[in-house]
Amino acid sequence: MSNIQIIDGEFGKRLKLHLAPSIKAGFPSPADDYLHDSIDFNRDLIKNPESTFYGRVDGDSMADAGILDGDIAVIDRSIEPADGDIVVGYVNEEFTIKYLDLSHKADGYIELRPANTRYKPIKIDDGDDFEVWGVVVWTIRNWHK
């Protein structure tokens, strides 16, 4: 009598493999030298997922910069804020989106400038406990409701 052990196959999992260029006789196609992944917004637009946060624009204080009420802002906290960047700051217990103006730093203050003449710049003195919360890297607007 022989012992036969029946082993169940495990076919539930699939291993993903890149498609290799097809094997042909003759000259290889130059296009086969490059394999391209599909465009992926998560990968291509969000460079630092760990430091990326989202915010929704409320109001028209940045209208002349093309940022409108309801737009979604992609905010990256890993970026060192520079003069002229559009940033998110926390002022008077709310988040605000404005241009960062460092041109008066030598005079002891910086400004958060709106892009709308109906709003005034927010002046922040050296001594104020202020930190740029993050730098805006993209804004997204939906056109097809």
Binding site: G55, R56, D58, V88, F95, T96
Partner: peptide, 13 residues
């Protein structure tokens, strides 16, 4: 929960 729900993302004035 601003990092897990679209309805909760921060509001930017």
């Amino acid at each position: 929960s601003p990092t897990t729900r679209w309805s909760d993302i921060i509001s930017l004035k």
